[in-house]
Each structure stands twice: as C-alpha cells, then as structure tokens.
Amino acid sequence: MMGRITRLVAVVIAAAFLVACTSENTNQQNLAKLIGGTLKQGVDSQRAGRQPKVVVTPKMLSETTVAALQVNPEIAGGSDFLRRVASRSDSLPGQVEIWKSSDNALIFLRNGVVVGTRGVGADIISADAALTVRALKNRAPASGLREYIVSDGDVTTTRMRFRCTINAVGNEKITVVNQTFDAIHMRETCIGGAVGDLRIENDYWVQANTGLVRKSRQWVGPVSGYFELVLLKS
C-alpha cells in the first residue's frame, strides 16, 4: 500500500515538472504550477509579515503637485498613494471621486465615503452613502439604512444591508504630515450584513472649516477589512 502511494505521488510530482509550452503565451499555464504559485505567494506573504505603513515626510508632500490620497490597508499592511483620475456628479448627494492606486486598483469616494472599489479583490461593486454623506456634511447625528453590494470574489455578489448610526465623537486636532487641522470626529456604527450579525465601524475626521473628510478609517468588504484613508492634498 505504502509503495503504491509513493509511486502515485512520484507520478504527480513528475507531471508537475513537465513544463507546458505553447504557441500562445496568454492562456496556457500548468495547473500544478498555478497552484504552486498560489501556495508560494501565501507562504511568502506569511514569512514576510505585514509591511509597515509608510510615513510621509513634509518634503514628499511639498513635492506632490497633484491631489493625493494615502491608503493604509490594515489586513494587507503597507501603504499606497492614490491619485485622482476622475470625478462625477449625479443626482445623489455628494460628488464621487475615483482614485487610482499604483497597482491600478480603484477606490470610489462619495464626499470621502467609500462607495466602491475595483481591482482590490472581493470588491465593493456599489454602495449607497446618502445617509453618511448627509450626516458628515451637517456634522450632525443620523441613523438609517445603508447597503453595500459586495463581490464574493467569483463574479457573483452579496447584498449587505446595515442599520447604521452616526454620532459625533468630539472635536479633535488631526495632523496630516506637517499640517494640523481642527476636525470633528464622526463615528458610524452599522449592524447587518448578509446574515445580520456583522458589525462594522467607520470613523471620519471632517475638517472643521472646509467640510472635507480629511482622514477616515473605513470598511471595504469582508475580505479586505479596514482601510485608513488620509487625504494628503486635495
């Protein structure tokens, strides 16, 4: 029995070493290699540990000539700097800005509130943010329903409904690189999700004089967890 298993394992390993070649580069990869690759990435990322956040220096900021958004994903670690590639107005409250990362992922922000992601994986396909946008604009408490359409990671989606409450935590001074702003800290607490047991908490720091969401920590889906978003330059 043992000999048979060893033989079969050897067969499979041998097959994995036979490299497939083809006249087309795009569409022909060896499954064993693909799965091996996935495994390797998983192991590598575990070994590498989380990347630290990048600390932006005043010099870096002063050299930036375009709008810039720093994103610090909590689960994945590290930082990225996004530039604004489009902005849209529609009949709904707030204006949508589309921000693009260095690895070509997109984040949609409606007045600073995440309403979509692309290329992140298990993306938020769409979200309604009217409640939050209004509360942040008025800097006043509000409660009501929010809805996210979240990708399951396989081109199907789950509709997640949340009951949310937004409250002011207090006035705080926030520092973005070398600038300090007076901001009001608003916290949005939502309970719901696909089966109703998911609790998410979004924090927003709204700049007192401009009403801009200068800094936030927002939920971007069940797989990606929370992103910290810092508006470096608007």
Binding site: T38, V85, A86, R88, I98, K100, N104, A105, L106, R118, G119, V120, G121, A122, D152, G153, D154, V155, T156, V223
Partner: peptide, 18 residues
Amino acid sequence: PKRPLSVLRFPAPRPYDI
C-alpha cells in the same frame, strides 16, 4: 463552491470615459 479558494482579482477597469 460559493466560496472561492482564492478571491478572484481582476486588474481594475479604466473608469468610464464620460
């Protein structure tokens, strides 16, 4: 089957040109 082993990541599409 409804829960993929690896989340499918597409390169983000270009925002629609308006």
